[in-house]
Each structure stands twice: as C-alpha cells, then as structure tokens.
C-alpha cells in the first residue's frame, strides 16, 4: 500500500479538501476535554491531543438515536404504525482516531454485524465511514493496549494511519478504502528516508513504554463458574458507587435501552446507551431482579468484558486497553487489577 508525506504546513489544506468530499470528524478541543466532532473548519482538528475523554463509539452507535417514528394523531389512518426514520448516510471520514479506539469497533462488530442478524444503523455507518488513525507516540499512564492484543500503532481497525514525525505526517494506506483516500490527496510528497526512520524509532519507543499487565489467554483458560463464584468480587465491588462512568466512556460497552418518546401526537422510538451498572437494567416487570446486588453488577461488567466475550467469540477480551475507565473511575477501580485478580493462581492459606 502507498504512503505519502504531508508537511504540517500543508495539513490544514489537505483536511480542507477532504471536507469538500466527505463529512470529516476529528478530535476537537471542547470545554476542558477533547471530543470527536464534525469539523466545521479545517484548523479545528487538534492532533496534539492524547485521547478524547469520551470514546468515539458515538460516531457509530450514538448516545441517543431515533430508530423509528410514528404518529398518534386521531384520524390518521397510519396512526400507531411504527416507521423508519430518515438518516444521513453520506460518506464520512474520521481523522486522527487512536488505533485502540478503532480496534474497539472491530470488537463491537461481532455484536452488531452477525451472520444472521445485522444492526442496520451500525452496519451502514461502518460501510460509509473511513477511519484514519493517529499512532500514539506517547501513550498515557493508564493505557494498556499491548496487554490486550493491540498496540499504539496497530493498523488492524484502520483504513489509513497517520504518524506524527515532527515536521509532518506520514500517511499510510492500510485498506482499499484508505488507498482510495490517499489517491485523492494531491498535497502529499514522497516520504523522506529520515521521516521513515523517525517513525520506526517513535513506534519502538512507544511500545517500550508498556509493561504487560495481564494475560488474556490465562483468562480464557479459567473456568467461568469458578471465576463467577470467586471471593475477590466482594473486594472489587466494595468502593464502586455504580455511577456507570466506566460503561459510558468505554468504547466496547454497547448496551442500550429502547424507549418511546411522544410530543403531542408525534412520537419517536429511540435507543439510548444503558449500563449494566444500574439496577433498573435487569429488573423484570414483576419486580424480580436477577442482578439486584451491586456485587452482581460489578461482576457482570468485568466478567462480560474479560471472560464471557472471550468464551463466546474466542477472539480475545472485549477491551482495547484505552484506559478511560481506569483514568475516570471516581473510586479508582482499575480493570488491570481486576484482570490480575481473575488470573491469579496463588492459593491463599485458609
């Protein structure tokens, strides 16, 4: 696949031209944090960011999304019939996503895009979006991507990869979609040998900053019910306040609720992110709640990510090591610690 070199001077022009062809999204500084947003101007994008506070999952699975619409108007012959809502599926380009976040979409694909059932909104957005990643020269302290099978320059979830080599970017095509994108860029030049060398150095130094936190394979070998019944959950759940921040920020937490909203005689059926941290998530109409205890909910989150997902799909854990849940948990619950507890083999004296 082809690669080009784009100087930082020319980069805004390149972004501007891309904006003429696609809806372009990128990390934008908003308030106190970076967030993925549709670019209104080519200089809005800030590729000096470390990572966004919210994961970019909302670009494919919006926080709240209208699924259908309906009328409840008296006399309307179509009243009460739920119908598709129009949506914009024009071509999109996401610029500067971290490789871990892009990898998360591949982990989510197994849920939304199966051989038998396809989520129509997720799959169409995936098909009409190209993702250009940005390699991580300087991982954050809460990151652990290399422990979960990805890495700071992992191209697996990307169509193209940007590497910031100081004065400019190397843009490498990864997929056909990425190649097409590169073919349309006229402001790039051949990659100087010094830039290639710098990129290799940056990658090596980034990768060297990680220590292996835990081994997902060791989790795969553990017995599910043994882990489920383990005594350490009591310790893990002790400080949790079930705020749901971890699930809200996590790029691989996809659970959602479906609710109807009505205004006067028009209504929408919408889906909204939900969280296994909340007691209402599982409560039956009868009042019976299979996960009424905090311990059960905390255990569900970790078991689903680290064990159930792995046992169901046999392709690693449902975690890309972005570290958001570690960084933003108000009571400092650390998924790396939990994974270590889950893989520990020591037998404590009775």
């Amino acid at each position: 696949m082809r690669e080009v070199y784009i100087t930082k001077e020319k980069f805004p022009d390149v972004v501007g031209k891309l904006m003429n062809q696609h809806r372009v999204f990128g990390p934008v500084f908003q308030g106190q944090y970076h967030e993925f947003a549709e670019l209104k101007a080519s200089d809005e994008i800030d590729l000096t960011y470390q990572n966004t506070r919210l994961s970019p999952k909302g670009l494919f699975h919006p926080h709240s999304e209208r699924m259908f619409q309906f009328s409840l108007a008296k006399g309307d012959p179509e009243a009460g019939i739920v119908k598709e809502a129009p949506k914009d599926y024009s071509s999109r380009l996401i610029l500067g996503m971290r490789p871990c976040d892009a990898m998360a979409f591949r982990l989510d694909d197994v849920n939304f895009d199966t051989t038998t059932i396809k989520d129509p909104w997720w799959t169409r957005r995936r098909a009409t979006t190209a993702i250009v990643g940005l390699g991580c020269n300087q991982p954050c302290r809460s990151c652990f991507c290399t422990s979960v099978g990805t890495g700071p320059f992992d191209p697996s979830g990307l169509d193209a990869l940007l590497t910031d080599v100081g004065d400019g970017f190397i843009l490498q095509a990864i997929t056909e979609k990425g190649q097409e994108l590169l073919d349309g860029i006229s402001d790039g030049g051949p990659v100087p040998a010094a830039a290639t060398e710098k990129a290799t150095q940056l990658r090596k130094s980034a990768e060297a900053q990680f220590v292996t936190q835990f081994d997902p394979k060791a989790l795969a070998e553990k017995d599910m019910l043994e882990l489920f019944n383990a005594s350490f959950w009591d310790e893990v759940q002790f400080s949790c306040i079930n705020c749901g921040t971890c699930t809200f920020l996590c790029p691989t937490c996809w659970c959602f609720d479906i609710q109807d909203e009505v205004c006067e005689d028009q209504g929408d059926r919408i889906r909204i992110w939900d969280s296994c941290m909340f007691p209402l998530f599982t409560v039956h109409g009868s009042g019976h709640n299979p996960r009424s205890q905090k311990l059960q909910r905390v255990r569900q989150r970790f078991m689903h990510k680290l064990k159930y997902y792995q046992d169901k799909y046999h392709d690693g854990v449902a975690c890309v090591g972005c570290g958001r849940c570690v960084k933003y948990c108000p009571v400092n619950i650390d998924i790396r610690e939990v994974a270590r507890l889950m893989t520990a083999t020591c037998v404590c004296p009775a």
């Binding site: 849920n111 939304f112 199966t114 059932i117 989520d119 599910m224 489920f228 996809w254 659970c255 959602f256 609720d257 479906i258 889906r271 939900d274 296994c276 998530f281 599982t282 409560v283 039956h284 109409g285 569900q300 078991m303 689903h304 159930y308 046992d311 169901k312």
Partner: peptide, 16 residues
C-alpha cells in the same frame, strides 16, 4: 428483561 430481542442490546446477557 429484554429490549432488542435479537442479541444486540446486551440486556439479557447470562454468561456467554
């Protein structure tokens, strides 16, 4: 408790 009924929304997850 279920919402989507088609194995996507995650609500009725029980182990694998």
């Amino acid at each position: 408790r279920m919402k989507c009924g088609i194995g996507i929304c995650g609500r009725c997850n029980l182990g694998t």
